[in-house]
């Protein structure tokens, strides 16, 4: 019974982890629609102090300030793009956890696909070339010389019975 209880407690603890957020009740906007927009935006904005957390997840004071600032902008009537631009004007694209697609980030966005294509092309090329070389000997009947070799091998095999 105790074991079951502690197992349940552990499961609850583990499951509750990812749901914990840094947003404090006093930061939240009274308008649920605006608050939902703010939450959505702040999940994609980097906390510059911790650098691999979003401001939605981070307890850093600067993250809190940025959350409040974001909500202020939304209340003032900024669109999502305007509110995010307000931050990128100050902190650059680095505040965006999802880097924008532009020439400087082409390698980042398209590099993996380019590698995949290149790898695929090499495989295809090799496969085709290997096939061309191997196709003729595989389908042609054995020559007399090959038949003789085969006979020798078969005989050797019989003699070798019982050996490892």
């Amino acid at each position: 019974m105790r074991r079951v209880l502690s197992g349940v407690a552990l499961a609850v603890l583990l499951l509750s982890g990812p749901m914990a957020h840094a947003v404090q009740p006093d930061e939240m906007l009274p308008d649920p629609a605006l608050e939902a927009r703010a939450r959505g935006l702040s999940k994609d904005l980097r906390c510059l102090v911790c650098q691999n957390q979003s401001i939605d997840d981070s307890d850093a004071p600067l993250a809190r300030d940025l959350r409040l600032l974001l909500r202020e902008r939304l209340v003032k009537g900024d669109s999502d793009a305007q509110a995010v631009a307000f931050l990128t004007d100050r902190y650059g694209d680095y505040v965006l956890l999802r880097p924008p697609v532009r020439p400087a980030t082409y390698l980042l966005w398209f590099g993996p696909f380019a590698l995949l294509l290149a790898g695929g092309a090499i495989l295809l090329w090799r496969g085709r070339r290997g096939g061309a070389d191997a196709a003729a000997p595989l389908t042609a009947p054995l020559t007399a010389e090959e038949k003789a070799q085969l006979a020798v091998l078969m005989r050797d095999g019989d003699e070798g019975k019982g050996r490892p």
């Binding site: 510059l48 102090v49 600067l62 300030d65």
Partner: peptide, 12 residues
């Protein structure tokens, strides 16, 4: 408030 710092792009 730290707002001027944010306007400068200060992160620490």
């Amino acid at each position: 408030s730290g707002r001027t710092a944010i306007d400068f792009g200060v992160y620490g």
